[in-house]
């Protein structure tokens, strides 16, 4: 079974990764990795498994080498272009070299402001995201299970949903007494819809058999909710949470850039306005790392609570 194509991917991990914020470098990295995984599932992996032993290990080493080389090549290209102040229509002369970035990063790591910004952004996103997760699951279940709730809430939700959360910034500024609450509100709105929509779909897609089973064992609607609906929708819910976390980052950073006084997004934009270009890159990398960390946490929890899903043996993702 080793290396066999993953035919059934659990929804929890079937989340579009591109929803997570990231730098251009991240995107390039993602593609390189995906290509590697496609190779895993292909005949190459099977050949490796068949020959086994040292050949397989050498194959793995070669692939890891390729991956590292790809990263290093991208970094080298950046360095070459910026160090040479290349102006090939794209103006690399304005961008900082790796050395400048590293120096700035090391400097930032010793200042308390860097950590204050980081904590501020994290508090905002975790508040907005947690509220969105609770509200999204509740509303999603409600409108999927109750026709009346659907009639009352759905038109409203469908009317608001097409508006990108970031377009609500003016409203948020007018509505809330402080910027802080406005930013959390934007984050909440951004994360709410993916969670709500995927919860609703997951509830609808539940096999009726499980509900029938619980009801014929004497279960009431409440029992069905706790014993079937909530556990049974977890894979779909975690898909929504993963996407929600991605858009929540996009929105918290954008909102900070527009109206914040602290936070990684604010600091990154501020660095740009004071012509501190290495600082901009440091901010970008910080955002990328935070986004990746929070998504990984969601993914990890999601996998733990959906261990009952049928999975292909030896699947890595």
């Amino acid at each position: 079974m080793a290396g066999a194509p993953t035919t059934r991917r659990p929804p929890a991990s079937g989340v579009p990764e591109d929803a997570a914020p990231g730098t251009a470098e991240d995107a390039a990295l993602g593609t390189a990795e995906d290509a590697g995984d496609a190779e895993d599932a292909g005949p190459g992996a099977r050949r490796g498994a068949a020959t086994g032993g040292t050949a397989g290990r050498r194959g793995a080493a070669v692939r890891w080498g390729t991956r590292a080389a790809s990263l290093l090549a991208a970094a080298g290209l950046w360095q070459a272009l910026t160090a040479a102040d290349a102006r090939l229509w794209l103006r690399f002369d304005r961008l900082p070299t790796l050395g400048e970035i590293a120096e700035r990063f090391a400097g930032q790591l010793t200042t308390p402001v860097y950590y204050l910004d980081l904590v501020q952004s994290l508090i905002r996103i975790l508040t907005g995201f947690t509220l969105a997760a609770v509200a999204g699951v509740t509303v999603g279940v409600l409108i999927a299970r109750s026709r009346r709730a659907g009639d009352v809430l759905l038109p409203l939700l469908e009317a608001v949903r097409p508006i990108p959360a970031i377009a609500l910034v003016p409203i948020a500024i007018l509505l809330f007494p402080a910027d802080e609450q406005g930013i959390v509100f934007i984050t909440f709105t951004a994360a709410f819809f993916p969670v709500m929509v995927s919860t609703r779909h997951a509830v609808r897609a539940l096999p009726t058999l499980w509900e029938d089973a619980v009801r014929t064992l004497g279960g009431s609607r409440r029992h069905v909710l706790w014993n079937v609906v909530l556990p049974g929708t977890l894979p779909g819910v975690f898909g929504g949470l993963s996407v929600g976390m991605g858009v929540a980052w996009i929105c918290v950073i954008s909102a900070e850039m527009i109206s914040g006084e602290f936070g990684v997004g604010y600091r990154t934009w501020h660095a740009y306005t004071v012509v501190d270009y290495p600082g901009v890159i440091v901010g970008m990398v910080t955002i990328g790392v935070l986004g990746w960390l929070t998504s990984a946490v969601i993914e990890l929890i999601g996998r733990r609570v959906t261990r009952w899903l049928p999975r292909a043996e030896g699947s890595r993702r």
Partner: peptide
């Protein structure tokens, strides 16, 4: 039931 009447997470 014929099949799959068990709750798979239990």
């Amino acid at each position: 039931f014929q099949d799959d009447g068990l709750l798979p997470w239990r």
